[in-house]
Amino acid sequence: MQFNEESRDYEAVTLVEGAIDLMMDLEPGFPAQWVRLQLSKLVKEAEAALMHETNSHLRLEGLIRLFYHDWGFSGDRNQYYAAENACLDKVLERRKGIPVSLGAVFMYIAQHLELPVSGVAFPTQYILRVDWPDAETQFINPFDGEFVSQKTLGAWLKGHKGPLAPWRDSYLTATSHTDVLARWLTVLKSALLREEQYADALRCSDLALLLRPGDPHEIRDRGYIYQQLECSHAAAMDYTYFIEQCPEDPAAELLKLQVKVLSAQTQVLH
């Protein structure tokens, strides 16, 4: 499938609109009009419910209650890695998702309510950042709507990268929509791989590479997908690229063996 990303400026639209565009590329039958209608309904409900609340802090707390309690949005704890948790139409239909999909929907509504909410691709998961002009910055876990402290985020980081992992302030800076969408595609691709939907995973990988051209880790993953699809030559080329770009990576030596096997298979086929 051919994708045309040249004319798209994902920073000029909301994150959720960028995600809709990507979903339309990945799935020709994606119900974009229905998704936009549902989002519009949620915005109108939120505006009606909070129209008399002029205090921004209380307005945010009201939106959190509305989103997670009244509307019933929540993180999917039972099937966290299911592909449907990364697909906007399924998230809006089931009201379940993962941090990036729930966060994108929440942020879309919050910004319509003129709340200072932005998204952060923290190393462990997507989080929301609230920059108050009159108070300290707050952070929200979009998986459950709970506020999280920097101390808690530090504990998440150590649990993810090890007890000696250094803290970087850049971990909490707002992330560009392009980078978040690339990460979103990576999450969806991983879910599709678990479900052995290799053709759909390949479309995710190709689209992610348009957002992050030449990313060696994405190209390595695409090589794995090609291997599952029995495209030995394409898989060997992608693995070779990764080995050349990341020779010190622990996976490089194993992939060298894979390249030999795949090259031998290609010779036999010819």
Rank of each mutant, 00 (worst) to 15 (best):
C231D: 10
C231N: 11
C231Y: 07
C231W: 08
H233G: 04
H233F: 06
A234M: 08
A234Q: 15
A234L: 15
A234D: 15
A235P: 09
A235M: 04
A236Q: 02
A236K: 00
M237L: 13
D238P: 02
D238M: 04
Y239H: 02
Y239T: 06
Y239M: 08
T240C: 00
T240D: 01
T240E: 08
Y241W: 13
Y241L: 10
Y241G: 07
Y241D: 04
Y241R: 10
F242K: 03
I243V: 15
E244I: 01
E244A: 12
Q245D: 08
Q245A: 14
Q245M: 15
Q245E: 15
C246H: 02
C246M: 15
C246D: 04
C246T: 10
C246R: 14
E248C: 04
P250K: 10
P250I: 09
A251R: 14
E253Q: 13
E253T: 10
E253R: 13
E253G: 04
L254F: 10
L255F: 15
L255M: 10
K256P: 02
K256T: 01
K256Y: 00
Q258N: 15
Q258C: 12
Q258H: 13
V259P: 01
V259M: 04
K260Q: 12
K260L: 08
K260T: 07
K260C: 04
V261Q: 13
V261N: 12
V261P: 00
V261L: 13
L262V: 06
L262M: 05
L262S: 02
L262C: 04
L262A: 03
S263W: 11
S263V: 11
A264W: 09
A264V: 01
Q265D: 10
Q265Y: 06
Q265N: 11
T266V: 15
T266Y: 14
T266Q: 15
T266R: 14
